[in-house]
Amino acid sequence: MKPPVLLFVVFFGSLLLGGECNDQKLTKITAGHHVKKRAAGDFKVGIAWDTCQSSRIGVNIFEINAPTVAILVTIIDDKSNAKIADGQELGGTGGTTISDSFPVPSSNRDYEVQWTDKSDQTNSGAVTLHKCVSISATGRRDPHMRTFSGLRYNFQGYCSYTLVKDCRTGSPSFNIFADFRGRQNPTKPPTRMVSVTIEIGGADTYTFLEDHSVLVNDRLVESRNITIGDDKGSIQADEDSVVLYFKEAGLSLEWTGKDHEALVTIDTDDLAGRLCGLFGDGSRVQGDDLVKSDGRRTTNTTEFAESWVVPGSCPHDLKTPLTRTRTRA
């Protein structure tokens, strides 16, 4: 139950305008940008890693203004020059996105991906898709924290704290926070994470409890396979863990209740240096991790972590029980 990724490129005619666009995603391309012109109409071609784990390259034809479209796809191993796919056809009718993915030997190497318009072979494109890269951070047990850059520290809080959120300008696309509580006494160390919550798009919330129950907007959901919004992602739960995948951010959140462990993995460079919270900024530079919620730097991990407390979440602030109620949906 591991996540898909996002290295993305879009083509114009026979030329690549976007280069290797690691910081763009299919859902963020706007009409009229990097349009591939053809006599029968316009369309766009996107190439991305499907998932690092499955070692598949995804090819999409989208925003099609033609009755039909077909392209021929060739994938070449950049190291051995071996052809993985050789002129495989991808096509269909207009008015929808046409997608397929092609297996490759490993996601840890570069590939040249070529495509040619079947109806007009003078229109084509090619790009080098670089190896798939991901970053991960984790908090576990009482709690031991490891940031995206590998900085390790311990933190004995007993409120709720932001683990990581999208800190780009405007409303965050996601915000993940965890409830820290003491083992014997809720307000005394040693503490541990007892639940983790992700807010998506400033709207819906998804909470995972110690027994792997799933709450959607604070209501218990019986299903173990949940679709997020309008196909924005998915949640899969079993006796071992709960895994959420959020497509827009190329993000997965894995919660293991018995170990009180939250593992966050992000499979795109789009968010590098643009994250914030207890897991750092995602820049892979440890010196950039300890930035408080007010934007100031510190070398004190406790001061840093306490700055990321969720307002109103500490026991003396709460007017309701510390554990979340599980109202059935």
Results as ranks from 00 to 15, higher is better:
Val5Ser: 06
Leu6Asp: 08
Leu6Ile: 01
Leu7Arg: 11
Val9Trp: 03
Val10Asp: 03
Gly13Gln: 02
Leu16Arg: 11
Gly18Asn: 03
Lys25Thr: 07
Leu26Pro: 08
Thr27Glu: 15
Lys28Arg: 03
His33Lys: 05
His33Val: 05
His33Thr: 14
Val35Ala: 04
Ala40Cys: 12
Gly41Arg: 14
Asp42Trp: 00
Phe43Pro: 05
Phe43Ala: 11
Lys44Cys: 04
Lys44Val: 07
Asp50Ala: 14
Arg56Thr: 12
Gly58His: 04
Asn65Leu: 08
Thr68Ala: 13
Ile71Met: 05
Lys79Arg: 15
Ser80Ile: 05
Asn81Trp: 13
Lys83Ser: 14
Gln88Thr: 08
Glu89Trp: 09
Thr93Arg: 12
Gly94His: 04
Ile98Pro: 00
Ser101Lys: 04
Ser101Tyr: 07
Ser106Arg: 10
Asn108Glu: 11
Arg109Ala: 14
Arg109Cys: 13
Tyr111Gln: 02
Gln114Leu: 06
Trp115Thr: 12
Asp117Arg: 03
Lys118Trp: 01
Lys118His: 04
Asn123Lys: 10
Asn123Trp: 01
Gly125Tyr: 05
Gly125Leu: 04
Gly125Cys: 09
Ala126Met: 11
Ile135His: 10
Pro143Ile: 04
Met145Pro: 04
Arg146Trp: 00
Ser149Ile: 08
Ser149Tyr: 01
Gly150Gln: 04
Leu151Tyr: 02
Arg152Glu: 08
Asn154Gln: 11
Asn154Phe: 09
Phe155Lys: 02
Gln156Val: 00
Cys167Met: 10
Arg168Ile: 15
Ser171Asp: 15
Ser171Ala: 15
Pro172Ala: 10
Pro172Thr: 07
Ser173Leu: 13
Asn175Gln: 08
Gly182Gln: 06
Gln184Glu: 11
Gln184Pro: 00
Pro186Cys: 10
Pro190Tyr: 11
Arg192Asp: 05
Arg192Ser: 03
Val194His: 02
Ser195Thr: 00
Val196Phe: 03
Ile200Met: 03
Gly201Val: 01
Thr205Pro: 04
Asp211Gly: 13
Ser213Asn: 10
Val214Tyr: 07
Leu215His: 02
Asn217Pro: 06
Asp218Val: 13
Ile226Asn: 06
Thr227Ile: 15
Asp230Trp: 09
Asp230Gly: 12
Asp231Val: 06
Asp231Cys: 09
Asp231Phe: 06
Lys232Leu: 13
Ser234Lys: 15
Ile235Asn: 00
Gln236Cys: 06
Ala237His: 12
Asp238Gln: 06
Leu244Asn: 01
Ser252Glu: 14
Leu253Tyr: 03
Glu254Gly: 10
Glu254Gln: 15
Trp255Ile: 05
His260Ser: 15
Leu263Glu: 12
Leu263Cys: 07
Val264Glu: 05
Asp267Val: 12
Cys276His: 14
Cys276Ile: 07
Gly277Phe: 08
Gly277Ser: 08
Phe279Ile: 10
Arg284Pro: 02
Val285Arg: 02
Val291Met: 03
Thr299Phe: 04
Phe304Met: 01
Glu306Ile: 02
Glu306Val: 10
Leu318His: 06
Leu322His: 05
Leu322Ala: 11
Thr323Met: 13
Thr325Val: 01
Thr327Gly: 11
